[in-house]
């Protein structure tokens, strides 16, 4: 069977419980794509293929719904991901304050080349908003993240959030790959013959990106 995608990228959903991560995921996956691998519950919730700049990009989203209490989540979770959707609830001040905690955990466990998109969920509940858009934008800027507000309830901006992050990841990976190819000794002219090897950690993520 021909491969149905060119690139596989892995994204994580993190944030306080109850901010609507799983709802976002359900919203995102719902639209159109049904995986060839039918899981026990009928739908594979975790994958979707998008066209990004002519590249068929399969997005695999990890969500630990229901498994938060298993200690396993913290460390294993981050290792293979290239992008993170850091979600908070615009109607919950606490979920916003706890973003620091998540960022800290993320940096502890991951290589530093992960793209993060800050997502304010429940944008439909404007009337009970407690976290202002300005505050969120400021926070995002100070941590060099992108920021987007979505509503899993209404489905607005959900697709944009995922595709925007995927796009950033793809661009970075591509840039990285080019840099590596250019800087590799021998590789420039003999790259067909020579398997590039280097023990810098970035290589690992590149490897992940290409793998499928």
């Amino acid at each position: 069977m021909a491969k149905q995608y060119d690139v596989l990228i892995r994204l994580l959903l993190i944030g306080e419980s109850g901010v609507g991560k799983t709802c976002m995921l359900c919203r995102f996956i719902e639209e159109g794509f049904i995986s060839p691998h039918i899981s026990t519950i009928g739908i594979d919730f975790k994958m979707k293929t998008l066209m990004i700049g002519g590249v068929r990009t399969r997005i695999q989203v990890w969500d630990t719904a229901g498994q938060e209490r298993f200690d396993t989540v913290t460390s294993q979770y981050f290792r293979r991901a290239q992008g993170v959707l850091l979600v908070y609830d615009i109607t919950s001040e606490t979920s916003f304050q706890n973003l620091d905690k998540w960022l800290k955990m993320m940096h502890e466990h991951s290589a530093d080349d992960m793209d993060v998109l800050l997502v304010g969920n429940k944008a439909d509940a404007e009337n009970v908003r407690t976290v202002s858009r300005e505050d969120a934008e400021k926070f995002a800027k100070s941590h060099s993240m992108d920021y987007i507000e979505v509503s899993a309830h209404e489905g607005s901006n959900i697709y944009q959030a995922f595709s925007r992050l995927a796009e950033t990841v793809l661009l970075r990976e591509q840039k990285l790959r080019n840099e590596r190819i250019n800087s590799l000794p021998l590789a420039s002219q003999r790259n067909k013959d020579i398997v590039p090897l280097d023990d810098k950690p970035e290589e690992k993520s590149e490897c992940k990106c290409l793998s499928s």
Binding site: T22, C23, L25, C26, E30, S39, T40, I41, I43, F45, D63, T64, A65, G66, Q67
Partner: peptide
């Protein structure tokens, strides 16, 4: 199983 059930719940 917990994840599956959670997904069914959310979906």
């Amino acid at each position: 199983f917990l994840t599956d059930l959670d997904m069914v719940d959310k979906a």
